[in-house]
Design a protein around this nucleic acid. Structure first.
Length: 425
RNA sequence: GUGGACGUAGUUCAACUGGUUAGAGCGCCAGGUUGUGGUCCUGGAUGUUGCGGGUUCGAGUCCCGUCGCCCACCCCA
């Protein structure tokens, strides 16, 4: 890493070179295939949204909205005094999807269930650490329009299959219900009442949480608070009949596809829009940021954004975190053939190479005149299956060498493509 | 926003309690008889020790500042 470089990239945003980009591709390709197999079509929403969308959708009290937004100054005159804060780089995509659904009146043009997946960068102004970047990539799926527990199971099921297919090592699926407007308030008061009786044993942060956002009490890592919270009321005992039934059915559906989540009553969400089912997939092999994917049901979000009452469930996965867990695979060679022509005049070779490329052969050629030995080393390093020797005194006849067997044959340029492509098709 | 650690060749790291021309592996380049890679052998190049200041006869080593990076907290994918 070059130090003191004046044009340094922005903190928490990284460059992805080809060697790493292929891992992204692998992951994205798999996600696309799987998500399309269950009816999700790709949706692309803008990277920039009005701030109010997230204030309303994600929640005024959340950290994402309060301290993690990247503001984009608005230039339009009607923006007014708040111009600096009018727009943001999206911190997540669910609110955008919901907004797009409402704004484009999808419920009227295409009534019924809509399913989308998205894939792209998200921005959060946080201090970077392991598994946390300021620009990171999420793959997500949103199933709009179905209140059925089967849809929850379907969403969770594809997520699980997606992750399993990547061979990421041990993953745990945590599941919980955060209730609905009918039962959650009761639970919150019960939890708060409990916390208030124990303020003396809680850390400073937790005392604030007890008043402001009691659900967060479960997240504290202080041993003292954890002990206290072990005796806290369990939300599972406070769910209303409908929420309880919903969860039971989700579990039943999941059981039929061989997915068994670990019921974790302390699992809560950082975003306000969740109702009922919430889930998270965690890995033991990451740092403190151990969640690789998370999601849940959000039955009120779309209505909250002035859309038609539309229940929905979705999730998103952190691509960079998944990448950390992805097992190493042998890199694909860049070329089928690497040309060894020590020159001095490479114009004719260049023309022949271009012909080969037009026929779909991946050919490596370097114009820098070097020794045959040096060029051979380059050929070897690229992993090309074949080396093609061009001699200045026999421009029509070339030598094709198989790098693994070492065997070498003389042939004309126009025979190369057939020979090379034929060998491994 | 808070706390802690770190910053030495391309890279991974070394340099006793401050002491002379800052080293090694890997990588890179070139050779190993006159155009054929991977192994092996030989040789070679490369650092304003992140930057600025201070202490000292003397600083890569100590102190302060600054920038960067990492890890953790907060929070979260």
């Amino acid at each position: 890493m070059k130090q003191n470089y004046p044009y340094r990239g922005v903190k928490g945003m990284k460059d992805v070179f080809p060697a790493e980009a292929r891992h992204y591709r692998r992951l994205e390709d798999r996600a696309r295939r799987l998500l399309e197999s269950c009816g999700c079509g790709e949706i692309r929403t803008p990277l920039v949204e009005h701030t109010v969308l997230f204030e309303r959708g994600v929640g005024q009290g959340t950290d994402i909205v309060n301290k993690e937004m990247f503001y984009v100054p608005a230039k339009d005159e009607e923006a007014g005094p708040d111009a600096l804060r009018r727009m943001v780089l999206r911190p997540e995509a669910t609110a955008s999807v919901a907004r797009a659904y409402v704004e484009n009146e999808i419920d009227k043009t295409a009534p019924g269930v809509q399913r989308y997946f998205y894939l792209g960068p998200m921005f959060r102004y946080e201090r970077p650490q392991k598994g946390r970047l300021r620009q990171f990539t999420q793959i997500g799926a949103e199933f709009l329009g179905s209140p059925s527990p089967g849809t929850d199971a379907e969403a969770i099921g594809v997520l699980w299959d997606f992750l399993q297919g990547l061979f990421l090592g041990d993953l745990t699926l945590l599941l919980n219900s955060v209730g609905c407007p009918a039962c959650r308030p009761d639970y919150l008061t019960a939890l708060q009442a409990f916390a208030r009786t124990r303020v003396a044993s809680l850390c400073e942060d937790c005392r604030a949480r007890a008043e402001k956002n009691p659900l967060r009490l479960f997240d504290c890592k202080q041993p003292g608070c954890r002990t206290v919270m072990a005796g806290a009321p369990n939300i599972q005992d406070h769910l209303c009949h409908d929420c309880r039934a919903h969860q039971a059915q989700v579990l039943d559906f999941l059981q039929r596809i061989g997915v068994t989540p670990h019921l974790e009553h302390r699992l809560m969400r950082g975003l306000d829009y969740y109702t009922r089912t919430v889930f998270e997939v965690v890995s033991q092999n990451l740092g403190a940021q151990n969640a690789v994917a998370a999601g849940g049901r959000y039955d009120n979000l779309i209505a909250e954004l002035e859309g038609p009452a539309t229940p929905a469930v979705g999730w998103s996965a952190g691509v960079e975190r998944l990448l950390e867990l992805l097992p190493e695979t042998a890199p694909e060679p860049w070329f089928d053939v690497f040309v060894v022509d020590p020159g001095p005049d490479l114009a004719a070779t260049f023309a022949q190479v271009t012909q080969l490329r037009r026929q779909g052969v991946r050919v490596g050629l370097e114009f820098e005149a070097r020794s045959v030995k040096a060029l051979m080393k380059r050929a070897d390093k690229t992993g090309a299956r074949f080396t093609l020797f061009v001699a200045a005194d026999h421009p029509a006849q070339v030598q094709l060498k198989d790098m693994t067997s070492g065997e070498q044959t003389g042939l004309a340029w126009d025979q190369v493509a057939v020979r090379v492509l034929g060998k491994h098709e």
